[in-house]
């Protein structure tokens, strides 16, 4: 790891000012992605601004409409939250299936979505539930937030402060985990909310998370796995790597989507 200057931010405002002053500064939250990347010398920020222990970014609040999760809330906290388990159990289960217990104790939702790894789990939940991402100066819908491989709508020096998920009538996430890394080879989040039905896929797309509109329309009419049994997803634009071919991933999307619908129907 190259050298850098470390600052522990005392507030979001303090973090923004430190970012502004740094030559090539970056925020660190749980560090479960950034530190491995820095150790491999794939990132070499001049300054690390630590927002991981800011109280104003941590915690979960719920009301009749849904739940809001602070950006620095860990995966373990989301998995164990009574509010999340009550409002959107599928979201708590997703958080409890990220990586391993040690990663879940440190990794945070803000870091996960800001990073937008094409195999990460949270982006699928955000897109399927129609979440709203809040930053230090605006709100961004999940549809506009995830813009491509490791790419988001965030400007330089913009900090995610929280994510708001609407309550779901029915929802489930099915992940076919890579047995070594635990990241999703294919993960499908299916949700039925006041806004309609959405199906979001992670792990498979070359450009990251995406929706399957053909499945969404079929499920809007009949929310059953039978309704999507005849739909095959094209392998165009799907990842091809040592773990799986595009065709295999396309097949898995169908399987995981049907399992998710069955699970959502309980």
């Amino acid at each position: 790891m190259y050298e850098f200057d470390y600052h522990r931010a005392s507030s979001v405002a303090d973090a923004l000012s430190a970012l502004g002053k740094a030559e090539d500064g970056t925020v660190i939250s749980g560090g479960q992605t950034l530190l491995p990347t820095m150790k491999q010398r794939l990132a070499s920020p001049s300054d690390l601004i630590d927002i991981g222990s800011l109280d104003e970014l941590s915690g979960i609040s719920a009301d009749g409409n849904g739940v809001t999760i602070g950006a620095a809330t860990t995966h373990a906290t989301v998995a164990g939250s009574g509010d999340v388990n009550k409002a959107i159990p599928a979201l708590a289960a997703l958080a409890g299936g990220i990586g391993d217990p040690h990663v879940r104790n440190l990794g945070t939702i803000g870091g996960s979505i800001a990073n937008n790894d094409p195999a990460a789990d949270y982006p699928a939940a955000c897109l399927a539930l129609g979440a709203t991402i809040t930053t230090n100066n605006r709100s961004i819908s999940a549809d506009d937030f995830f813009t491509g491989l490791f790419d988001t709508a965030l400007e330089n020096d913009e900090i995610v402060t929280g994510v708001t998920f609407p309550r779901a009538d029915k929802a489930a996430y099915m992940k076919f985990a890579n047995p070594a890394s635990r990241y999703a080879l294919v993960g499908v989040f299916v949700a039925k909310t006041g806004e309609g039905v959405r199906v979001a896929v992670t792990g498979a797309g070359e450009d990251g998370v995406f929706r399957v509109e053909e499945m969404e329309s079929a499920l809007a009419g009949d929310f059953s796995s039978a309704a999507i049994a005849g739909i095959s997803v094209s392998s165009d634009g799907l990842n091809n790597d040592i773990h799986a071919s595009p065709d295999y991933r396309a097949h898995l999307i169908g399987v995981m989507a049907r399992r998710a619908v069955d699970a959502a129907n309980g």
Binding site: Y6, Q32, L48, P101, H102, L106
Partner: peptide, 24 residues
Amino acid sequence: SQCGACVVHVDGKAAKSCTRLAVQ
């Protein structure tokens, strides 16, 4: 960050000490 040989407890929770800075 994969093997867990470095696991310690930080404030009572298991963490990979190879994926945490001392200053944190």
